[in-house]
């Protein structure tokens, strides 16, 4: 979305997180690094669902975890929130080590700082739209009237005004997930977790909701971790993408990084069908630095596909500018045209 400057502080820091399943998973901690290869563990009937995951997410960044089913992406997300207890590693929210928290402190942290959207919505069938959205507030012990006022705000935020007293069974799938989104934001959390939130929805509705998420992030940017198996979705929403294969993160980077500099064959095959123009940013195709704006301007974080019409419409120079409007350089028109012409 926004090309993330490295200036924002680290909000969520993950280092060397492992999640191992198996009959004797308790003994995993004492294994030396050499015995942690997939083959060595398989011999002892251990499966490393998440292996040595390390990354930092900056404040306000949308971090997408991508992978095929069974790659461990949902497990990783659940480890971050401790819905699943990691076997080993360190996870810090704003510097606080979440793995050291006791039950109550953890519940408190989740109440105050985290919101989550679920794949199958997880709406409570006995509560109305309003009741579902107010649920996290009620859990905190906030007075009913106050909770419902806040819930009403969120109802209109996700465009469900007039449906406050409907039951989940009376809503379409897309509307249900809007309720799920509103509920996850009820407590105004700093951290937003989305676990394949749109994979159960039709493509058109999925696109609507992706727009919705983008809009919400624009209005109030939260540190978000978004799990999906849909590369298109990842490219649309992500600041950075982590690609997982068999429990390991094989590459972390922007969509452009993945397409232009895939770390492994696996990644290469994964992104093979992405038109480069969709991911390569204007700032990557600068031929010469400039001091002053001349001709048309484009934003540095716009993709070539975004600015294609400008490139084609006018033969003059195009200046690439940063978010502040300061010029960075002149766009290399030749390369841009080549990029646009590049077939999958």
């Amino acid at each position: 979305m926004t090309n993330f400057g490295s200036s924002a502080p680290v909000a969520l820091s993950v280092s060397n997180v492992w999640k191992v399943f198996g009959r004797d998973h308790g003994s995993f901690k004492s294994r030396p690094a050499s015995a942690r290869t997939a083959e060595a563990m398989a011999k002892d009937h251990l499966v490393g669902a998440v292996q040595a995951a390390s990354f930092d997410i900056r404040k306000g960044e949308v971090f997408v975890i991508m992978g095929l089913s069974g790659s461990g992406k949902s497990t990783l997300l659940r480890c971050l929130t401790r819905l699943i207890e990691p076997s080993e590693g360190e996870i810090r929210f704003d510097g606080q080590d979440i793995l050291s928290l006791n039950e109550t402190a953890l519940a408190d942290l989740r109440r105050r700082k985290m919101g989550m959207v679920f794949q199958h919505f997880a709406l409570l069938p006995n509560r109305t739209v309003l009741g579902n959205i107010a649920f996290p507030l009620e859990v905190q012990g906030i007075a009913r009237a106050q909770a419902e006022d806040r819930a009403r705000e969120l109802v209109s935020l996700v465009g469900l005004s007039g449906r406050e007293s409907r039951l989940p069974s009376e809503l379409s799938g897309g509307q249900q997930q809007r309720v799920g989104i509103a509920r996850s934001l009820a407590t105004n959390p700093d951290f937003w977790f989305l676990d394949e939130p749109f994979s159960a929805l039709d493509p058109l509705i999925r696109a609507d909701l992706q727009d919705e998420v983008q809009r919400l992030q624009r209005e109030h940017s939260r540190t978000a971790v978004f799990v999906t198996h849909d590369l298109d979705e990842a490219i649309r929403l992500a600041d950075r993408i982590a690609i997982m294969e068999n429990g390991r993160i094989v590459q972390i980077g922007t969509a452009e990084d993945l397409v232009t500099r895939p770390a492994t064959d696996y990644v290469r095959r994964f992104v093979a069908k992405v038109p480069p123009a969709r991911v390569i940013c204007a700032s990557s195709l600068i031929k010469a630095p400039v001091a002053a704006v001349s001709g048309l301007t484009v934003s540095g974080d716009a993709t070539i596909a975004d600015i294609a019409s400008k490139i084609v419409a006018d033969a003059g120079e195009i200046t690439v500018v940063d978010p502040m409007g300061k010029p960075i350089g002149l766009l290399d028109r030749q390369k841009a045209l080549e990029t646009m012409a590049m077939k999958i």
Partner: peptide, 19 residues
């Protein structure tokens, strides 16, 4: 998913059960 929701919203055991 529903149980995860309860945990993510910080429900106590009793809240999880009854609500």
């Amino acid at each position: 998913d529903t149980l995860d929701l309860a945990r993510m919203t910080g429900c106590s055991r009793r809240q999880t059960l009854w609500r």
